[in-house]
Amino acid sequence: MTEAEINEFRNSLTELIIGAHRADAVHLIDKISEETGYFVAINEILEPVLIEIGEMWSKEKLSLAQGYVAAKITEDVLQNALQTSDWQSKTTINKIPVVLANIEDDFHSLGRKMVATFLQASGWQVYDLGNDVTAAEMVDAAVQYQAPIIGVSAMMYTTAINIRKVREEIDSRNLQDKIKLAVGGAIFKVRPELTAEVGGDGTSSNATQVPALFSELLLTIKN
């Protein structure tokens, strides 16, 4: 693909996502992948578009509905990609494991599921533990899967403060240099100071920007 073609595809895909045209967007990536394979189509076209979408979303130029459409398109594309040998051969090695969960008493899974989709598209191995997960269960899973990052989601202040228990669990096992704690959810946008209050190592303003946050956190891990 020439640079002009790449730009044209990216612009088209951005428009399709913003317009909530799920099927057309997936079809566009499928068409591109026929020539380039899914690995290139996802890395060169979809991922840069998701970064742009994330920036627009963080500036409140896009709605939750459009962010959701972006996640569904990514999910559909990944499903198609997983069936190809091109994607499998290029992505099965060196995947970094991460653990995701909603904190105990929290049942708002939308954000977490979107984050899982965007992380998978960026090549992370996601272990999604679901809703209402205790701190001990999360840290146990991170140890079991050798995950250097735990991503915890909460929607309300009352459940978000339970994330402190994850911080305490990590610290009490002396894992603070090996496991980083990423936090997120609607309440962290309303109360940015909450990240520090619950002992989070970082947060992201929306789901599409989580892969970048995790890459940054990974750099802070001490082996």
Binding site: A20, Y68, V69, K72, H108, L110
Partner: peptide
């Protein structure tokens, strides 16, 4: 139906 269920329905 939850936010996710409603968004999915409303959109698609």
């Amino acid at each position: 139906m939850g936010i996710e269920g409603w968004l999915e329905t409303l959109l698609f």
